[in-house]
């Protein structure tokens, strides 16, 4: 009744609402337009030019698609793409499996489980640069604690970060240390939302723990896991800080990843045009991957 009476004034209100809404959103839009959209467009522009950053007065020289053509024959680019994919797939798979297992083991309302959450928060909030250097210190071939522990089991000294195979493994494991706890925290929140009645009913019916996991727990948290995988996967592609301090892509190109390679092209070799072209190609691929994941999630959610 009250609503009907106020219809004319509601319309007037909605007009002032409209103005206010736009006023609320405009400052942010302008700011993001200048600091995010514009640099991205500038990157697109630069990708068609040749510009050396180390010459302060250099004028960009138009070269058409040559930066993009160069990508096709760039061997390091091919290697970094493979490395990034390998890194992302392996570390995300490990993080999700380990993170979920730990979340399940810690699934309890008791004090010890709640205290454990405080511990799991630490790697999540620690500066990635600090994590990288900490592990670099621990993995050091001569003064590192890891080799010292392994020596008790008769394992000879391993040069973790300076031989190609173990370098990739180290970078992956450090990423798992950094982010499996994050997966644990997210999954723990998801596990809490599973209805206790359903679990107890299954238990009374004599279902084994394995069956309960496969038939109830996993389907219930599947949508959440999809999002976790998506977020982690997209993030893994952007890995920079830890790689930069641990190996800087080395030895050779063994741990060279795309963000680090783009950084090197631009700020080590000062080739702004090529760096920009790489960045744009990277953004395009990421957008396709993200859209693909979102479609997958929508389909999973529709199924439930």
């Amino acid at each position: 009744m009250a609503k009907k009476k106020s219809t004319p004034s509601a319309i007037r209100k909605s007009r002032s609402d409209k103005v206010a809404s736009w006023l609320f959103v405009t400052p942010t839009m302008i700011f993001l337009g200048i600091t995010a959209l514009l640099p991205l467009l500038y990157s697109v522009y630069l990708s068609f030019f040749r510009l050396k950053l180390n010459l302060p007065n250099a004028v960009p020289e138009f070269t058409g698609f040559s930066n993009y053509i160069k990508m096709l024959t760039d061997e390091t680019l091919r290697i970094s793409t493979t490395n990034t994919l390998l890194f992302a797939v392996v570390s995300v798979a490990l993080e999700v499996v380990v993170g979920l297992m730990v979340a399940m083991a810690f699934c309890s309302d008791k004090m010890w489980a709640r205290c454990a959450t405080s511990v799991f928060l630490i790697p999540t909030i620690m500066a990635p640069v600090a994590i990288g250097t900490l592990w670099r210190m621990m993995l050091d071939a001569t003064t590192g604690i890891i080799n010292y522990f392994l020596s008790f089991f008769g394992v000879p000294s391993i040069t973790w970060l300076s031989s190609p195979k173990t370098a990739m493994l180290s970078v992956i494991l450090v990423n798992v240390w950094q982010l499996a706890p994050w997966v644990t925290i997210i999954c723990a929140a998801g596990l809490k939302s599973i209805s206790p009645d359903m679990l107890e009913a299954a238990c009374v019916d004599g279902a084994s723990n394995g069956t309960i996991f496969r038939r109830i727990v996993l389907p219930m948290i599947a949508p959440l896991l999809t999002i976790v995988v998506m977020l982690r996967f997209v993030d893994a592609f952007k890995v920079f800080d830890t790689v930069y301090v641990m190996t800087n892509g080395g030895p050779g190109t063994a741990t060279e990843m795309l963000p680090n390679y783009i950084y090197k092209q631009g700020l080590r070799f000062f080739d702004a045009g090529y760096s920009a072209a790489l960045a744009i190609a990277f953004v395009l691929v990421m957008t396709v991957v993200t859209v693909g994941f979102l479609k997958l999630r929508d389909r999973l959610e529709a199924e439930i």
Binding site: L32, T35, A36, L38, P39, L40, Y42, S43, L46, L53, V234, F237, K238, F240, P259, I262, Y263, G266, L267, A272, S275, A276, A279, I280, F282, V283, M286, T287, T290
Partner: peptide
């Protein structure tokens, strides 16, 4: 969402130049 997804490195060089 897109801005949350794309890598910071994509705008590093233009931002540096500006």
């Amino acid at each position: 969402m897109v801005q949350k997804m794309y890598p910071a490195i994509a705008t590093a060089i233009p931002v540096y130049l500006v």
